[in-house]
C-alpha cells in the first residue's frame, strides 16, 4: 500500500530494513516511522485498549495521543508514529499499559 506515482511528490525511500512484528518478518524503509512501515504492510491494529481490549490504531501521527503505543525491543509504550524504524527492530502489539520485560 505504497504510493508510487504522484503528480507533485517524489518519495526517495531509504535502504530497505527488516524488522519483526509479533515475531513475523516484515520489511520497511529507512527514514520511515514504525507506524508508517506497519501501515504500508497492511497492519492497522497496533494495540488493544486496557479495559475493553478494543483494537487501537494510530490517530494523530504526530506523537500527541498515545493511540499508537507498542512494545519495541522490549520497551513498552513507545509512540510508534514518531519513532523511526531501525534494522532488526522487534515490534510487538501491546495490551493495555504494557509490561516491562
Amino acid at each position: 500500500m505504497r504510493i508510487t506515482e504522484h503528480p507533485i511528490l517524489r518519495f526517495d525511500r531509504g535502504k530497505e530494513l527488516s524488522f519483526t512484528f509479533n515475531g513475523q518478518p516484515m520489511k520497511g524503509y529507512e527514514g520511515e516511522t514504525i507506524a508508517a512501515a506497519l501501515h504500508a504492510a497492511g497492519v492497522k491494529v497496533l494495540a488493544k485498549s486496557e479495559k475493553l481490549h478494543r483494537p487501537r490504531g494510530f490517530f494523530c501521527a504526530i506523537g500527541n495521543c498515545a493511540s499508537c503505543q507498542m512494545t519495541v525491543d522490549g520497551e513498552p509504550n513507545v509512540r510508534t508514529c514518531i519513532t523511526l524504524l531501525r534494522e532488526g527492530m522487534k515490534v510487538e502489539s501491546q495490551e493495555g499499559k504494557g509490561r516491562l520485560q
Partner: peptide, 24 residues
Amino acid sequence: NDLPGIYGAGAVQTLMNVYGVRPG
C-alpha cells in the same frame, strides 16, 4: 469512533505526503 481506520485528517496527510503510504 476508536476503530483503527479512523484517523485525524492531519495524520492521513502525514502518512501519504511524508511517507508515501496509502492510508487505504
